[in-house]
Amino acid sequence: MKSKWNLAAFTVMALTVVAHAFGGGPEIWLPVYESSLPQVVRISMGLVWHGLTVLFIIMAALSLAAYLRPKLSLGINLSLAPINLGFGGVALIYGFVSTGGVLVLPQWILFLPMAVFTFMALKAMQKSEA
């Protein structure tokens, strides 16, 4: 059974890719790249930054794959839900602890719905298999 929750997850993840690459790139990554930090630090942070860009693209593609290939849907959604819950939780908690508010780091606004959508797709798949 194809779940529309996966299409919703795909849409949110695509938005995340755009926000990360085009919003975060110039505002967050560029100051690090141009800083006087040791090269090993800039390289490692660059890897994390660009690796996450590709990871978000992969997660968007996986959401689409879960929609198109219901046989793989259960495993894919099961893997995407906790990962996005983790990213969303870190953004929310770390943001609150380090800045005293929940809106300075707004990334959870994308990651937590992504976790919910993949979880709903997972439940829909389990229901259809029962």
């Binding site: 967050i28 942070m45 930054w49 996450l52 983790g86 870190v90 770390y94 943001g95 380090s98 780091l105």
Partner: peptide, 15 residues
């Protein structure tokens, strides 16, 4: 936002 986001991605990768 910059400091927080860098911490978010670093600890996010750990998680």
């Amino acid at each position: 936002l910059v400091k927080g986001t860098l911490g978010f991605i670093w600890h996010g990768v750990t998680l």
